[in-house]
Design a protein around this nucleic acid. Structure first.
Lengths: 335, 335
DNA sequence: CTGAAAGCGCTTACAG
DNA sequence: CTGAAAGCGCTTACAG
């Protein structure tokens, strides 16, 4: 239990040195005698002194806080993603001596983020979701606040980091094709989301790489409603499609619900895969073939990039992280 | 776009008054002429000046930050709870001019919280989960940091706020009994969790209030594993129990999975209810009868209490919030 | 009603 | 190698 009222001045007086000296002994900056440094450090440890970071910040024009921008209008299946991001970010920040300040924003209201910025409470920010024409992003740019965006943006000025969705979808789709599937359908969400486009490109790439593949593929985009999914699945059942590929696990959950209600056996009567793996799907019966990303790593790396930027280092504009394809019960051939 | 480099000194000089006057015009504290106040305020608005809260904090020995303590070792079904708490807290804090600083803790590591406290980054804290012998709670108490705990604790010194789990479980159980159910089983989680005890007490209370009720009830506690649930459900099916009552939605999810695999129709062959409602359950087929709490309200109230404490007001030790029983497809008689 | 001055707890040129 | 002094951007007794 440290004394939270101890100040640098107390220590200086107690040790008969100047505040300057104490400050230097702690920070390691500036020349200082080995002897005195030791004396100070011993005192500091013995009394569990820890400096007032806020005062330090004021003097250095820093806050040692990072803004974490979280969407308030989330879909429930996205929660594990944000949670893991948070975990990775908060750990990395903490290890570097920074704290994380929360700003929840919605599509139309970014007041919390504005507050954090105008009140000068943060040194930089991390966006955990990016949209086309992203309000938080625009605001940060206009106000010269350094930030990194988790997810992909077309804005080349933004430092961004994302998983390699395109590559992942390419590989998973390729495996399905190589396994002999001759008819499949893709159900995807909103095309404004850049991730949707990347997934689609990956899907298509798998076909392009297999010029000799023969069969039928159907594509449904901009689907975000359970009933729509139901209709689509109905028609796909009639057409005797072999496999339904879902772009995310919300859609996949819908598809599985339909299967369950209609008592269609997965994978015997219909195979199902998802382009995104959440723990939600892992708990389902049957377990779903999908792609796994290390989201906590994504958070750690994002935070690491921001810290580099704050140190004045140059960082590259776009970083892509890996993936892992997981074959599970919902498809026929496990590798 | 405000000028983030404008200071109180600039304004004072520009207006030919003292910094003191500017400060007073902004804060409303101390006597000041109506005339001068207006001049200052107009200048401030015209130039979008907003004070440096960190400097203000240093002078007043405050940070205007609240610590939000979130568990890092969560179960996935708890996420919506934490998310909604966060939302409520962050909104209330924001409206009161505070920001929210994140501290993720695990059962054995509370270093992030310690950092926030020793670095003097927060004025108070909110715990979003309480355990028996709660490390974060103990730490905050030892260091004299004001806090409020969401959830229940036996510690009478802690300011705590919770939903009325006992009352809610009493009412839902009562409805089942009044509906004519004559055999039921309760499956619950860890008894160390105070919420488990409260739910159990509510369950029992319903029986006590119905002295004339005849039938059988079985109770299984300390269950937290899918396989255990499976075994229990097996035996309950054999015993032809009419209804399975789950203490939380993780357990309920397990029970429903078993039903699905064994092709037991709910509610026709077995009724199922949960003592906690999460959106996870609402999306299931069939939808599950359960209890609904306004978690965002819980967050708002918790934050409100902490703010009161920081103002030096007395707050009562324990606050209980309401609930709503939702009858859905998983039980036979909807009201 | 208004202001000069000291203070919050640090850092950092500048001198020595 | 060390220190006195000014400064970070605010607030607040104390005087007038």
């Amino acid at each position: 239990m440290e004394d939270r009222n101890l100040t640098i001045a107390d220590i200086a007086q107690e040790l008969g040195v100047s505040k300057t000296t104490v400050s230097r002994a702690m920070s390691g900056k500036g020349r200082i005698g080995e002897e005195t440094r030791k004396r100070v450090q011993e005192y500091v440890e013995a009394h569990h002194y820890s400096p007032n970071v806020v005062a330090k910040g004021l003097a250095q024009n820093k806050t040692f806080n990072l803004g974490l921008v979280l969407p308030g209008d989330y879909h429930i299946v996205e929660l594990p993603f944000f949670q893991k991001c948070m975990m990775g970010i908060s750990r990395t920040a903490s290890a570097a001596g920074y704290d994380v300040l929360l700003s929840m924003v919605t599509a139309d209201k970014i007041t919390q983020l504005k507050r954090a910025v105008t009140n000068r409470k943060i040194d930089g920010a991390i966006l955990t979701r990016t949209l086309a024409d992203d309000a938080p992003m625009r605001y940060l740019q206009e106000n010269g606040v350094p930030f990194v965006a988790i997810g992909s943006t077309e804005d080349v000025h933004a430092v961004q980091i994302d998983n390699d969705h395109r590559g992942a979808c390419r590989e998973l789709t390729g495996r399905l094709l190589d396994d002999g599937i001759r008819s499949l359908a893709l159900i995807g969400g909103r095309e404004e989301y850049i991730v949707t486009r990347n997934r689609l490109r990956g899907f298509e790439a798998a076909f392009e790489e297999r010029a000799d593949w023969k069969g039928s593929r159907r594509i449904f985009l901009n689907i975000d409603d359970e009933r729509e999914v139901e209709k689509i699945v109905d028609s796909l059942l009639e057409e005797r499609v072999a496999c339904i590929v879902c772009m995310d696990d919300f859609l996949c959950g819908c598809v599985l619900n339909v299967m369950q209600t209609k008592r269609i056996a997965v994978p015997e009567q219909m195979q199902v895969v998802s382009f995104y793996d959440s723990s939600m799907l892992a708990n389902r019966i049957p377990s779903v073939t999908s792609i796994r990303f290390d989201v906590e790593e994504l958070g750690r790396k994002a935070c690491g990039l921001l810290l580099q930027m704050l140190e004045g280092e140059e960082v590259k504009g776009r970083t892509l992280l890996g993936y892992e394809v997981r074959m599970r019960e919902s498809t026929k051939r496990c590798p």
